[in-house]
Structure formats: structure tokens, C-alpha cells
Amino acid sequence: MISADPPGDEMTNILSTLLVEALMQFRSVCKSWCSIIRDPHFVNMHMNHHSSYKESSYLISKDIMLDVAEIKARFTLYSDETFTEHKKMEFPLWESIKSFEVFGCCNVARKVINETEYDDFVVSFNMADHVFEEIMLPKSCLDDGELTVSLAVFRDSLYLFVHGRELPGWWHVLMMGEDCSG
């Protein structure tokens, strides 16, 4: 019998062959499964197993659906090789009229999307499980009108550059943790 705690290689191997839907469901099997499934290395391993989620293989377009009763923002993922439509999704987090841009991708799985202008958070989107997450930026630097801010993604981190009258500073925001460092 395979021991689930501590999780062995075997268990990780089996889980990495499961379908995404099953994986999301099986997060609630037990805590150790949940932590395997959330682990960025596991996410990579899983993506490599399932060729439909190749690195950077999607383009995103934003569609605004105008309706009498409501305005809904959706976006569509397209495969970058064939331009076929992969999936339509709704933005769960924002007011529909605001704009966004895509900053890049790290950990293979995660796309970072930012809501532009005057906002103090960015949003990450996980390709593996289609989950959005808000990442709060350090508030103090943004409240000061004299500063301008730009974002970049490099390796597995999201970097936040703050330009002010004094020397430029930077923060980097870890994608998987919540810590911000200056």
C-alpha cells in the first residue's frame, strides 16, 4: 500500500497523470494531496504531462458583451499555434469596464494580469486550474502621487518597480507566497 503521508514519488506520479478536473476535486481528499497539487513543481510536472497546456500557448482577448441589463467582461483564450478558440471565461474579480493588460507568465502555469490605472492589485491566473487570485501590492508606495509604478515578470517572480524623485526602488512580489519585499 502506498503511503499518502509523507507523499512518495509514486503518488506524485499518479496524480500528475490525472485530469485537471479530477485534481481540483481531489484537493479535498486530504491535506497532503492538496499541498502536492498546489505545489508549483507539481503544476509544471502536470503540464508537461498534458500537452494541451504548453508553455505560453495561449493568447488572450477581451470581449465586452453589451447587454441591455448588464455589461459583462469575458475573455477568450486562443491557442497561439492554430488560433483556435480554447476557452471563454468571465472575469470574476473586476468591474467590467476597466481595462487590463497581460504582463507575462511565470511558473509556466501562471499568467499575471494587471488592471491598469490607479489600482493597487494585480491578478494572477492559473492555467492549470483556471483560478484567479488577487495579489495586493504594497500600498504605501502607490498612495503617493509622485511615484510611478511599473510591473514586470521575471523567472518565477513578479517585480514591481517604483520610480520616484529619489533613487528608483523596487519590490518583488513572490507569486506563490504573499510576501512583498523592498
Partner: peptide
């Protein structure tokens, strides 16, 4: 792939620690 969470726990002899 298509099993319930409960069935998976039984099959792998995992106790629910949530």
C-alpha cells in the same frame, strides 16, 4: 479520474484530515 473524493480516500486508505 472519475471517482468521488470518498471513494479515492477508501482506495488509497487515506483518512480525511480536514
Amino acid at each position: 479520474n472519475n471517482k468521488s473524493v470518498r471513494a479515492v480516500r477508501e482506495i488509497f486508505n487515506i483518512s480525511n484530515d480536514y
